[in-house]
């Protein structure tokens, strides 16, 4: 059945121009079906729970809540705060990783002794698990009493900073950026290596060097890779969770609560599965809005 031509009229030994000889739909079906179930079941369940009265502490309260869950969430200032925090974290980390990623890539592209080792060291943070790196930062580096940073500050006579109390979101941003700079560096470094040597030499003959060379030749060359980095990182940064749970647990107050963390808190700390599902649906909608603009701009950039 698989190999039989779709159209009996084409059974002649003439090869049709556009018609594939093999009907591939049955071959693709298993994976398509599996992926579809994989996606549709959780989505359907989330939508279902989001209109239910579903509290883990009160098994008696059941039945349809309809849009009460949404109404409760949308009128709660915590949601707007979480969205603001999410945007601040994503944008801040993106900016930091792109700037430092470009700087690291340019530095590691240059010829110097021990370059191989330096490249290896630069990549390492990417392989450290988020919880582990967050704990290292929290207890060894940013701790106001025992941390390395406070020791450095104290040794030059400055007061120690209590990072997670005073700058919770920025501190988490620093940790996440530290984890993602290697990724940006890696992508931008490979892109730099594909920069035509003759183009640089032509620019040198034209009088560009140092900063002007970087600004006029190197950076435009990296433009595409930067958009790739931004797109991939956005997807992952929108769901940053472990670093927040390990360090601040969303606090102090709600100062470092992002949308994923708010959903977690509603479901597993407030035991309100219905409300959390409604939050999840809102997160899906927001993510899709971001994805729409992102994919459009990037597709436009890649076409150039």
């Amino acid at each position: 059945m698989l190999l039989s031509p779709k159209n009996p009229a084409l059974a002649r030994p003439v090869v049709a121009e556009d018609e594939p000889l093999i009907n591939t739909t049955p071959l693709m079906a298993p994976s398509v079906v599996l992926l579809f179930i994989w996606m549709i079941v959780p989505l359907a369940m989330t939508l279902w729970f989001s209109v239910q009265r579903y509290n883990l502490l009160d098994p008696t309260s059941v039945g349809f809540a309809w849009f009460d869950n949404y109404e409760f969430l949308l009128t709660d200032p915590a949601l707007l705060n979480a969205i603001k925090n999410t945007i601040a974290l994503v944008v801040g980390v993106l900016a930091a990783t792109v700037v430092f990623g470009v700087a690291c890539a340019v530095a590691l592209d240059a010829q110097f002794p021990g370059r191989g080792i330096a490249r290896l060291f630069c990549i390492i943070p990417f392989f450290v698990m988020p919880t582990v790196s967050a704990l290292v930062w929290k207890n060894l580096l940013m701790n106001p009493v025992n941390g390395l940073f406070s020791w450095v500050l104290k040794s030059v006579g400055l007061p120690a900073i209590d990072w997670f109390s005073n700058y919770p979101l920025s501190s988490i941003g620093i940790i996440v950026a530290w984890q993602w700079i290697p990724f940006a560096t890696l992508i931008l470094l490979t892109s730099l290596q594909s920069l035509d040597r003759e183009q640089i030499e032509a620019a040198r003959m034209d009088g560009a060097r140092g900063w002007t060379l970087f600004w006029n030749i190197t950076l435009p060359h990296l433009y595409r890779s930067i958009t790739i980095v931004v797109m991939i990182e956005t997807i992952f940064l929108l769901s940053v969770f472990a670093e927040i749970l390990v360090t601040t647990s969303g606090g102090p107050g709600e100062a470092s609560t992002t949308l994923p963390f708010l959903i977690y808190k509603t479901a597993l700390l407030d035991y309100d599965v219905g409300g959390a599902s409604a939050g999840g649906v809102i997160a899906i909608i927001l993510a899709n809005i971001v994805a729409f603009f992102l994919v459009r701009t990037i597709a436009h950039n890649l076409e150039r």
Binding site: D196, E198, Q199, E201, A203, R204, M205, R209, P220, Y223
Partner: peptide
Amino acid sequence: DERGLAMVFQSYALYPHMTVADNMSFA
């Protein structure tokens, strides 16, 4: 750039992100 020479490269080495006019006026 201070020797007063201009070079034409085998691969042309044009700057891909600039227009022809910008390429020519870059120096």
